[in-house]
Design a protein around this nucleic acid. Structure first.
Lengths: 221, 221
DNA sequence: CCGTCGTCGAATGTCGACATTAGACACATG
DNA sequence: CATGTGTCTAATGTCGACATTCGACGACGG
């Protein structure tokens, strides 16, 4: 039983990330060091360190002498980020595509089935969880750690966005079909096609989120 | 005339990066906060913040309670990083490939000529500078900021490695030929080929660096 | 009324001290 | 000799105070 070291800085990062996922913070909101320090009962130093790390990860915007803010992602930034994730994951899946065993492909198929079923049952959280499992499993076969690191960072960033919107993006049959297409392309062992399908998978999600946000901002005004 | 804000943290990052480029630090070396603070005449707090950022950028390894170390990059990590850069830049160049003007292509050709000439003249620093200009120009036409951010981070990381080894990697004619191949593929407007050529460009460099390091470690023993 | 300047308060950047942890080394024991 | 324990020192993690900066607001002058 190994005790996992957890500095205050790490705990602050977790806490802020949970706040992001829980929609407790809105784009443009300011993260005040002293307020966070008060809430968490610690001094500002680990708060500052955590914010520096979140800044480098792209999860917050930092302005020297002014402060830290939740990014306002423009439609273009959303598309750019999803596109980049598609490029990375497309390559990861393509480069590993000939190494998938029959059992692994079957597992991917089962995950797609489960995702579709959960979507039809209206089990929203389950769909997200299974979807995450599907993508993790998909890239786990790639052995390029650098690429997976960046993909994971983008995942962390985009998950905040997706978590907020996903329920409005796809019908149950669409969810099933678009993930099935990835598995089908792997089975077909067509490398160009694999990259295309995975890239398109993400660009589609990015585009839909942008569309949903545009709709929401219209109705708010 | 805008005064560019520069916190101590930013200055520390620059300083450490220069140390990396100047080969003043070796893989495995420890970066002590108190020593750096003493050398730079400031307190440890901005040092710590800088180190957190460098850690997130992948330029140093951080172990809680123990300290910060210069990474020892395994051959696999080197290849992984170069491969990832190739994937990102390959996509960037491919996606922008139909937007290059004739003047821009001519400029790329001239940069390749200049690089070859500098290599033949033994102007080593110039080769690196022109090479950097070539790649910057190549990706500048892409408008995906997220992707360019990651590419730039990898560039920062890999530049430390390349700066140390590049003089031993290629003959002058090879330098010219391998960059020319990129320009030629763009002119041919073959998108698949463009991605392939750019990816291969980086994998080749990564492989050569690994080979040179293997040779060096043999001769050292 | 508008623009400029000064003041003030809040927030950030940094400082140096204290608390905690890890590793090195010496010593004791089997 | 190998292993375990205790001690000490150096380095990291955090604290709270001080210095600096920025933005908001009010007063004043044209």
């Amino acid at each position: 039983m190994v005790i996992v070291k957890k500095t205050y800085k790490d705990q602050v990062i977790d806490h802020i990330y949970q706040m992001l996922l829980a929609d407790q913070l809105k784009p443009g909101d300011r993260l005040k060091e002293s307020l966070l320090a008060l809430e968490m009962g610690i001094s500002r130093a680990p708060i500052r360190e955590a914010l520096k790390e979140l800044m480098t990860l792209g999860l917050i915007d930092y302005k020297p002498q002014i402060g830290n803010f939740l990014p306002v992602m423009t439609p273009k930034q959303i598309i750019d980020s999803y596109t980049t994730r598609g490029v990375l994951e497309g390559y990861a899946v393509m480069s590993a595509s000939e190494h998938f065993t029959r059992q692994e492909l079957e597992r991917l198929d089962r995950l797609v089935d489960d995702m579709g079923q959960a979507a039809r049952d209206g089990e929203h959280k389950q769909v997200v969880d299974i979807g995450g499992e599907f993508h993790d499993f998909l890239v786990a076969r790639s052995d390029n750690q650098q690429l997976l690191e960046y993909s994971s960072r983008l995942s962390m960033k985009l998950h905040v966005l997706f978590y907020k919107h996903w329920g409005m993006l796809y019908r149950p049959d669409e969810i099933e079909q678009r993930h099935r297409a990835i598995v089908t392309s792997i089975k077909a062992q067509d490398k160009t096609r694999i990259e295309q399908v995975v890239r398109a998978h993400y660009v589609e999600t990015g585009s839909k989120i942008v569309a949903v946000q545009a709709l929401n901002s219209v109705t708010v005004i």
